[in-house]
């Protein structure tokens, strides 16, 4: 039992490392090869975890080889578009200027209901409102609405809007995030000044957010 416990921890750490090593894309949008690797790694890791008479190496070696293959494949895909096309396929135009390409829909084995469902999720309720709808290589649908159906933006209306600012968490549970401070172009001395001005101790702060306009919001620990 203790061996299973230790193996589980070890394999957990190795799989975490493997997925992180493969890159951020692995944990968000999966390409075909990445999806296959993720399935395989999770399956391979579980075998030596459950069966203690199976050597741990017999699980580690395939994981290492799969991760390396994935890295090599992604590097080759960067270097060769043909190779990328073979592994990932290519994007497919489903709707062009409001007209549905039925052949492509059939090839994708996608029903009209599936297409409408995805369009509705993107606030499109009629195919005629779509200028372009493309099925990306990861299976997601990208939609460009016709210009007359798109909400006007500031440049269309000819108005000037102030620069967008976003709040960043600079203190979380009493810990200062230097990264967030640098994102907001602020520094520790500014933060110390604010805390002194507000007469609040760092350890009493639950969350403090700030933006580059030096506007801040403090939530105290309850």
């Amino acid at each position: 039992m203790l061996i299973s416990f230790l193996r589980a921890i070890l394999l957990y750490l190795i799989v975490i490392f493997a997925v992180r090593f493969m890159g951020k894309r692995q944990i968000s949008e999966l390409q075909t090869s990445e999806l296959v690797i993720t399935f395989l790694i999770s399956d391979i890791a579980s075998i030596p975890m459950q069966n203690t008479s199976q050597p741990l190496v017999s699980g580690l070696i395939p994981i290492a080889v799969l991760v390396c293959c994935e890295i090599f494949v992604s590097v080759f895909m960067l270097k060769s578009s043909k190779f990328r096309k073979i592994i990932c396929g290519s994007a497919v135009i489903l709707i062009n200027d409001g007209k549905l390409n039925q052949n492509e829909l059939r090839k994708l084995r996608m029903t009209v209901d599936d297409l409408y469902e995805q369009l509705r999720q993107m606030d499109v309720f009629s195919i005629e409102d779509v200028s372009f709808a493309i099925v990306e290589t990861n299976g997601k649908l990208s939609v460009l609405k016709k210009s007359e159906k798109q909400p006007p933006d500031a440049s269309t209306l000819g108005i000037t809007v102030p620069d967008a600012v976003f709040d960043s968490v600079v203190i979380s549970s009493g810990e200062i995030s230097d990264f967030s401070l640098s994102v907001c172009k602020l520094n520790r001395s500014w933060l110390e000044g604010v805390l002194a001005g507000e007469k609040i101790d760092l350890k009493d702060i639950f969350i403090m957010t700030a933006n580059k306009n030096k506007e801040f919001n403090i939530i105290k620990k309850s």
Partner: peptide
Amino acid sequence: KIKVAIFIFLVA
């Protein structure tokens, strides 16, 4: 990363 991958591959 590719160097590390090659190293891991060779170790395996």
